[in-house]
Write a protein that binds this DNA or RNA. Structure first.
Lengths: 337, 337
DNA sequence: GTGAAAGCGCTAACAG
DNA sequence: CTGTTAGCGCTTTCAC
């Protein structure tokens, strides 16, 4: 492992000069720079992040806390984060909360071990004690996705998103509308499901439409659970709604499968709308309110990076992320309209 | 930021004693240990990985190279890796290859920067030059998923998996069998698709069954692409096969959706089998050859960790990962049997 | 333009 | 059982 001093010796220079040359600092003669770079290249010199981190306090890594990587949404966000960080020569250090049963969730200080220069937290709401610890380490921290108290956040206005989706259905003439929502056991982001469900109920109420309990399904934010919930409704012999709002596209996909298998024509008999803008949505022809998780990841990364150089200390809020109603072929007027 | 020396001073001890006490090394009086731990706890002491890494050469991090995190399979593997590493107090440093266009793929040494103690590579086959660089850094390295030349690997025998799936169809009496395969543009793992497709063709040949070109569909290892390919076959008016082998469950889901939309009854008219054991498979009732990506991740992590303490230098091979045919309701005898 | 020296926070012999 | 002494490989004043 060749190190700074090896290069210095070989060239009869001092460590400092070599260090400066390598980092392109001013005040080094072009000839020296070239010589140093040449030897470094030839000897396959790799700077030690640990050593420079020790002196500068910068570790060129950002911690990313994820409820579960196997969720499409989170994986997309992380992808975006990684892409943005890579450009700045920063790495992602992952903390998957789905790992250890859950009780290990408490923000053990040692999780960080002064390894990361900042933190991005996906849809995870910390307890007061955890926040205090976070605060103590003093890392620039931002949330992505679900509301995260005590820190700025990149994410859509979940209430507005659901209002948009619900109004789309109402605008098409629907009055008998069901919801496929529920809580996300693995996703941990308890607030997003709540906000989304509440927004649905509120919007219906505003329009003078009653919610019907038998049309409020629990899809657990998962394909399989949503499909089964739909299967049950179908099998129950209950009257069907003319439209279903699914609070995630994965659930919408499950619902579509169930409907199709039962021979129900979408959207002629039942309309279905999702939320998120999942990869599958286009192929499914799914109408959805689309957001851009990858871009949100990039934005969060940019924010953290910005606060690293700035180092100001005030964590200002960021504007809400954009979303867009994308109308495809799973929504239409209610039957008999 | 309190450091070792602060604790030492406060207790009138030396740094080494404190260090030993904190790490539970032998030869320190219980009283001292307790005192040290107490102060450390109270002052919120966080050891600096950079500093210890600098002396020990251990950074308590493993690099994970992923073609694309948004693939369910890879995300699952990474989840498993993270879980296993967490138990050993190791972190995952992510390198998402889907980030920078692709040409940055060359294994830039600086990617590692002596930050990680080992490397886990998912389904990425490196060029000779990249391998050489890898070798030069001398990190214990293992692959997961698709074959990776020049290093041991955790993964199923893809040939055998496809043979199992194909024989299942043949065993049910099918003679008119199609394949939904193709290449995975984003996944980068060029060899797995090849092996799987070849195994299919071979197995049919062995059974004296001809492959029909119009039944060889390109699904791109994606839901949407597979669905569209199926849609096209359906629209073409071609005779349909009585069974379809999809080389990934995501593609199988797309095919099922297309079939269902066309009013074709599965498995009465067409049987469908997938590969992988995706989360969705159960809800879809999809027959599949299941593997355990998460466990594979754990195994790979365990292997790397083992070689960290062992430090032997020889990288022995690991046994192939298990897989299992899970028969559900999308496969059955061909029509008219 | 370049060098010398100090030190980041820890671990690892080597002494006692 | 505990302290002393060297570094690990780099960056950073402060000199020249």
């Amino acid at each position: 492992m060749t190190s700074l001093i090896d290069i210095a010796r070989e060239l009869g220079l001092s460590k400092s000069t070599v260090s400066r040359a390598l980092r392109g600092m001013p005040g080094i003669s072009p000839a020296t720079v070239e010589a140093v770079r040449g030897v470094a290249e030839r000897d396959g010199y790799i700077p030690s992040l640990a050593a420079s981190g020790l002196t500068t306090g910068r570790h060129h890594a950002i911690g990313v806390v994820v409820p579960s990587l196997r969720r499409w949404f989170y994986a997309s966000v992380v992808s975006g984060i990684d892409a943005a960080l890579a450009e700045a020569n920063y790495d992602v250090v992952l903390f998957d909360l789905s790992r250890g049963g859950g009780e290990e969730r408490l923000f053990h200080r040692s999780l960080l071990r002064r390894r990361v220069d900042g933190l991005i937290v996906l849809s995870t709401d910390f307890a007061a004690e955890e926040l205090r610890q976070l605060d103590e380490v003093g890392l620039p921290t931002i949330g992505v996705g679900g509301p995260t108290h005590g820190m700025p956040r990149v994410g859509v206005d979940d209430h507005a998103v659901v209002v948009t989706a619900t109004r789309h259905l109402i605008g098409l003439g629907h009055r008998r509308i069901g919801l496929v929502g529920g809580v996300d056991a693995e996703g941990l982001n308890s607030t997003v499901p709540q906000i989304r469900s509440a927004a649905f109920v509120d919007t219906l109420a505003e329009a003078g439409i009653d919610v019907r309990d038998e049309w409020m399904l629990s899809g657990g934010y998962r394909f399989g659970v949503a499909k089964q919930a739909m299967d049950r409704l179908l099998a129950s012999g209950e009257e069907l709604p003319t439209a279903l709002l699914c609070t995630s596209d994965e659930m919408a996909a499950g619902v579509l499968f169930a409907l199709q298998a039962a021979g129900i024509v979408v959207p002629d008999e039942v309309s279905v709308i999702g939320i998120d803008g999942h990869d599958y949505a286009e192929a499914l022809g799914l109408t959805t309110v689309q957001q851009e998780p990858e871009q949100q990841g990039r934005d969060a990364a940019g924010w953290v990076l910005g606060h690293l150089v700035g180092g100001s200390g005030d964590w200002p809020d960021v504007p809400p992320a954009p979303y867009e109603l994308v109308v495809r072929s799973t929504t239409g007027a209610p039957p008999g309209d």
